[in-house]
């Protein structure tokens, strides 16, 4: 054991000063508070402009947003509600098919079909997951993993919605700017909306259910109803992403139920750091472009990708965002005892 010295963590002065609303007295403090948010919002809003010369990377940005939404849904369910959901792709599939159906058979434009598909799809997913709500941990995870597999088989077997070919000729967006900015703004709004929800009364009750559902029940709260609401919000994010994807690809098909949509968001949450939703987004921002950049490795891509993931998780198990947030608000020094 070392004797005599220990590493002390102390909040930065500027953090302490800017924590109290009334103490904001200088531009520096305001900047300290706003910098992380501005970086995120500004970064997302400027990205389509900056990537103007690289249309390929503009598409990657769309995928980043899709995965960010899915990672947020996973993070919300896992770290706020306490349900490990491996069925992200089910949300995507339901949303995708929903938007395609609304567009083709009801003639709705993307701006109507996407939100409507997200709403209806979320209600549909919540209804299907309702019987599994009493399950916890690995049991809930397995059930949610089954749903996309089941959906694929059913669509295949009954040749529903164009069977294995999927539904072609879904309407696309009028121009790429609308396509990009619609998704980027929606992602930001949903991110901050969900973060707000998590600190409202409903969010507090949801966290209570994760910590001790018996105590919440003893307070006279119907936890099934609350959990169903939480699932609805998460499913809404997933279905929104799916509906959007259908309009981008102008196609809805079986590959929307692919395992990628369930697994990569989990990796993003782990790398970025769970429990803050921001971590999930950061993870998606890092992982998706990384996975694109690794295409140069050809067949070894997944190996390199997995290696990087493993190293990050072993070295920074807490998640990047938690680490960065700590460095931003605290400093460390050695003190004599």
């Amino acid at each position: 054991m070392k004797t005599g010295k220990r590493r002390e963590r102390i909040d930065r002065g500027i953090k302490v000063r800017s924590d109290g609303l009334y103490a904001l007295s200088s531009w520096r403090e305001i900047a300290y508070l706003l910098a992380p948010r501005t970086l995120l919002i500004g970064g997302f809003l400027l990205a389509p402009l900056l990537l103007l010369l690289f249309p390929y990377w503009q598409k990657v940005l769309l995928i980043v947003c899709i995965y960010a939404l899915l990672a947020m849904a996973f993070d919300f369910l896992a770290n706020y509600v306490g349900l490990v959901c491996l069925g992200g792709s089910f949300f995507v599939g339901v949303g995708g098919y929903g938007a395609a159906l609304l567009n083709k058979y009801c003639g709705l434009a993307p701006f109507l079909s996407i939100p409507l598909a997200a709403l209806l799809g979320a209600a549909f997913c919540t209804l299907l997951l309702l019987p599994c709500l009493p399950l916890r941990g690995v049991y809930f995870a397995i059930i949610t993993l089954m749903y996309p597999l089941m959906a694929t088989r059913i669509i295949e077997a009954f040749e529903l919605f164009g069977g294995t070919n999927g539904m072609m000729d879904v309407a696309g967006f009028a121009n790429p700017w609308i396509e990009q900015y619609f998704l980027v703004t929606a992602t930001l709004l949903l991110l901050f909306g969900l973060r707000r929800l998590a600190v409202e009364d409903l969010g507090l009750v949801i966290k209570g259910i994760k910590d001790n559902d018996q105590s919440v029940r003893a307070s006279g709260i119907n936890i099934t109803f609350i959990k169903a609401q939480a699932i609805f919000y998460a499913a809404f994010l997933g279905c929104f992403a799916g509906a959007y994807l259908a309009h981008v690809y102008m196609w809805a098909g079986l590959s929307m139920f692919a395992l990628d949509f369930s697994i990569i968001p989990i990796a993003a949450t782990v790398v970025g750091g769970g429990g803050s939703l921001m971590g999930a987004v950061l993870g998606a921002v890092l992982l998706v472009p990384l996975s694109e950049a690794l295409r140069a490795f050809g067949p070894l891509r997944i190996v390199v990708y997995s290696l990087i993931l493993t190293v990050v998780i072993v070295i920074k198990g807490e998640g990047l965002l938690n680490y960065l947030a700590r460095k931003y608000s605290q400093f460390e020094r050695w003190v004599e005892i």
Binding site: M1, K316, G317, E318, N322
Partner: peptide, 11 residues
């Protein structure tokens, strides 16, 4: 590992 509290043990 969790990024939580820093525990120091001396003695």
């Amino acid at each position: 590992m969790r990024g939580g509290e820093q525990i120091t043990v001396l003695g």
